[in-house]
Nucleic acid binder design. Structure first.
Lengths: 128, 128
DNA sequence: TTTCGATATGCAATAAGAGTCATATCGAAA
DNA sequence: TTTCGATATGACTCTTATTGCATATCGAAA
């Protein structure tokens, strides 16, 4: 009795959104999806500036986000070099790699439980 | 081997935060914790203004939030009366009651899975 | 020793969201 | 038919976040 019609999008469809982030006790600053992706790109491109460009956020913000992230955790996420022919570069620390992996797992867990919870939600709401 | 030391708070402790919300396809407006609590209070107090006051948000915002919520869902969450001796009043529709119940269950599911996921996260991060 | 481009950082300009203020509308009860 | 207080809504102000701009610093390679 399970019909497999593809779920049609109606103008009145409702979606569940969520956002998770890490913070320190002060609540000042956070490590969220933006920070996560920024770090991923830094690891990939070896440059904070390049990572900021790819993520389409200002270098100013990217730099600040990274600063906050390291402040919250209390340890460095990147090794940064200034100067040199190419102007400088940034690389992820081993700690950053662990963070990314753990954060990714966290997101995955959420994605899973979100879908499940949302299905239950819609089922409850359905009988208009 | 499980020592029951109360978890000490260090300046470098990290906390997991999350937020969930419902939205329509347009992404304009949302139904979140604020809306949820506002509706609860409306049901309790029979007045949007009173609910806004209790929640310590401006009537302007409360009204707008409610407007958006109903727009997203495509049906009324409140029956509103203007005029009369007491100036008017608001009451929840049966649909609103269902929404609140479903939303609450959604939050509950999250609260549970969050704690679990975060514990796993911290365990992964621990081996500094 | 000059050069080049990324890192580093302050600060003014903007944009987005929420709050404040003002004002209109409504209708049961006095 | 006057009154009172909540609903309704525009418009402006305030806050906070982000962008944008300017400017300094660094150091390997040419």
């Amino acid at each position: 009795m399970d019909d497999d019609k593809p779920p049609r999008l109606s103008k009145k469809d409702v979606f569940l959104n969520y956002k998770i982030w890490l913070s320190g006790i002060t609540g000042d600053g956070m490590i969220d999806e933006t920070t996560y992706r920024l770090l991923i790109e830094i690891g990939e491109l070896g440059s904070l500036k390049a990572a900021a460009d790819v993520q389409k956020i200002s270098y100013r913000k990217a730099w600040g986000d990274l600063e906050k992230a390291e402040e919250i955790l209390g340890y460095a996420l990147t090794d940064k070099q200034r100067g040199g022919k190419d102007g400088g570069n940034s690389a992820l620390t081993p700690a950053a790699l662990r963070l990314l992996e753990a954060y990714h797992a966290l997101q995955q867990t959420f994605d899973d439980s979100v879908e499940e919870a949302f299905n239950a939600f819609k089922a409850k709401l359905k009988p208009e």
